[in-house]
């Protein structure tokens, strides 16, 4: 009896494990197919632009509002610590660097996964469940090049733009707390920021990060939708998985990218 249940546990773990590997392979395959079917997304660029518009607009409000609060909190916390060392003018640098290097790309990606990612998964999942993808196949139109690829490139384009927006609004929020509210000198705030934020090391790296997150989040959302069982339950659990998997992927990738960027 005990041997039996141990064996059962062993089998369950093994099964879960092989399934994960299997899905990873299926995801990689879809990624590859998407890349090689991308010609149409650029030849008929209006298809991609339309999706950029939808994903971008969808995430716009939540990103602007979050960025504003994140920037304000950063300024409050930063001032608290910096003033003890008598360097409260450095607050501009602190806010800008924290946003541009880490918080901008990461928080934007997390919000994107929750807002646009889930919408993409649900949309693709429902298109599959209602046989829209099948119908497209039967019309000799490849759903990968007509539906998946434009959404993929839209996510990859939208994410860095949203990230830049996040950073700008965050810095504005930090400024409003630091300068008018706390009374830090405005000149010091901006000039220190300008002097200490590097174009390549900070800004460009942040944008690269967010482009990578864009690839990961959008691909995960698309794969979960495309792979979802064509039922209400299947689509809803796929949507949940999109958020969980994207969040973990973003945080893991962030660590990997940061260590890589710091080491070169």
């Amino acid at each position: 009896m005990i041997v039996n249940s141990r064996l059962h546990l062993f089998c369950t773990i093994g099964h879960r494990f092989t399934q994960r590997i299997w899905r990873l392979g299926a995801g990689a395959r879809l990624f590859w197919l998407t890349i090689i079917s991308s010609g149409e997304s650029f030849r008929r660029f209006h298809l991609t632009i339309r999706e950029v518009y939808f994903t971008g607009v969808m995430s716009l409000i939540i990103i602007v509002v979050s960025a504003f609060f994140v920037g304000m909190v950063l300024a409050l916390q930063g001032y608290n610590t910096l003033q003890r060392y008598g360097s409260s003018e450095a607050i501009g640098v602190l806010v800008a660097l924290a946003l541009v290097r880490e918080l901008g790309p990461v928080v934007t990606a997390l919000l994107f996964a929750g807002r646009a990612g889930t919408a993409i998964t649900a949309e693709i999942g429902l298109m599959k469940a209602t046989e829209q993808l099948s119908a497209m196949e039967m019309m000799a139109v490849s759903p990968i090049s007509r539906v998946i690829a434009p959404r993929f490139w839209a996510g990859v384009i939208a994410m860095p733009i949203l990230n830049v927006l996040f950073c700008m609004v965050g810095i504005l929020g930090g400024y409003l707390v630091a300068v008018p509210l706390i009374g830090v000198d405005a000149g010091a705030f901006w000039s220190q920021m300008q002097a200490n934020v590097d174009w390549r090391l900070d800004i460009l790296n942040g944008v690269i990060k967010s482009a990578v997150f864009g690839v990961a989040c959008t691909m995960i959302a698309l794969f979960e939708g495309y792979d979802a069982p064509p039922t209400a339950e299947g689509v809803s659990s796929a949507t949940t998985r999109t958020v969980v998997t994207s969040s973990l992927a973003v945080l893991g990738l962030d660590f990997a990218l940061t260590s890589f960027m710091i080491s070169i």
């Binding site: 046989e131 829209q132 119908a135 019309m139 000799a140």
Partner: peptide, 27 residues
């Protein structure tokens, strides 16, 4: 071939006009 699916399988994000125009625009 043309196929009429059991539940229509119309593209829900496109209007009736665009649904019918879809195969023409693609091919």
């Amino acid at each position: 071939m043309g196929m009429l699916f059991q539940h229509g399988a119309l593209f829900t994000d496109l209007s009736v006009y665009e649904n019918v125009a879809f195969p023409m625009r693609e091919h």
